[in-house]
């Protein structure tokens, strides 16, 4: 078990190093950092001095090591566009994205898992067929179109909900939260739903497929032959076994939530990291792009490590050693 965790930890560190390397290569090779930082009037000597100061003449691996070291110490460099420290810019935006992503993920799980279970247990019913068709259409509509439709319906036609921004926010420590005001929640509903729909359909289809697989297994057949009450059979036996593969995929889906948050944030002008990333792409603001990558990969790796721990909690085969 300890070995399993350590192995996963090493894999995670590898992923982080690879992403850091990607980010570093971006910074180093896409465009010339010096010409980005200086104006036309800077002399050649000044440029050369800056180059030396930045350590751009050092050996490549040495530069990468220093870059990684800086990242670890929270020194993320400066934006080409705003000249602000990137760390501050990102830190300002993190709460908005995390709140949006978390609420969306919760929506997708709260609806997706029960719907998946229901459709797996009643595979031929009318309700099931309707749900399946709806979700199929759901995965086929681009996230931004769902956003537009929601804005059009609830924002423009009905005028019930705000269509952009975070609404009322509260400062808690360094964290700007919209979870503590009614206005904040009202602003959060549409974007979170938009972001959650796609994950919801994926979760539902996955739970359904896995559950149907489990329902056909020998141990469910045996439990049926022993007359275990249906409710217990479905939830204690079948659902628990379904969750083992499902949580792995949900962990991987977290990446999808983050990615689509870029789209959602763009549609709803939600001031999160995704919007920042889009702006940085538009202006080729390499340091911000690079750091965004590292931060996203970090969250992804963190969530998947947590999933591994959950895995161990659920599955005794990973927890308890084999014995004769």
């Amino acid at each position: 078990m300890v070995y399993f965790i350590l192995k996963r930890l090493f894999q995670s560190i590898f992923v982080m190093l690879a992403v850091a390397f990607l980010s570093f290569s971006l910074f180093r090779f896409v465009g010339d950092p010096v010409s980005q930082m200086t104006g036309v009037e800077t002399t050649v000597e000044d440029r050369e001095r800056l180059r030396e100061e930045l350590g751009l003449n050092d050996p490549f691996l040495f530069q990468f090591a220093r870059f990684t070291g800086d990242l670890l110490q929270g020194d993320f460099g400066y934006s080409y566009r705003t000249r602000q420290p990137v760390a501050e810019m990102i830190a300002d935006r993190i709460p908005a994205t995390l709140e949006l992503g978390t609420v969306a993920l919760i929506i997708s799980l709260l609806v997706g898992i029960p719907a998946g279970v229901y459709t797996a247990l009643n595979p031929r019913g009318f309700v099931t067929q309707s749900i399946l068709l709806t979700t199929l259409v759901g995965v086929s509509i681009p996230t931004f179109v769902i956003g537009i439709m929601l804005i059009f319906l609830f924002g423009v036609q009905l005028g019930w909900l705000p269509t952009f921004g975070r609404g009322g926010t509260v400062q808690i420590g360094g964290w700007t939260s919209s979870l503590f005001t009614v206005e904040g929640w009202r602003a959060l509903i549409l974007p979170a739903f938009t972001l959650g729909v796609y994950q919801l359909t994926l979760t539902m289809r996955l739970v359904r497929a896995e559950m149907m697989e489990v329902m056909r297994s020998d141990y469910i057949l045996f439990a049926t032959a022993r007359g275990i009450p249906w409710r217990r059979l479905h939830f204690r036996h079948a659902l628990a076994n379904t969750m083992v593969p499902v949580i792995t995929i949900i962990g991987l889906q977290f990446g999808g939530v983050i990615a689509f948050s870029i789209v959602t944030e763009s549609v709803f002008q939600w001031p999160g990291m995704g919007l920042l990333f889009l702006e940085s792409i538009r202006f080729v603001d390499i340091p911000v792009m690079g750091v965004y990558l590292v931060v996203i990969a970090f969250f992804f790796v963190l969530v998947n490590l947590a999933v591994d721990l959950l895995y161990i909690a659920i599955d005794p085969r990973l927890r308890v050693k084999e014995a004769a």
Partner: peptide, 19 residues
């Protein structure tokens, strides 16, 4: 593949476009 998974589809596409 792990690294690629940590950088989901839209992100990868945006990144390559940015590069």
């Amino acid at each position: 593949a792990d690294v690629q998974l940590a950088l989901p589809a839209i992100l990868t596409a945006l990144l390559i476009d940015g590069i």
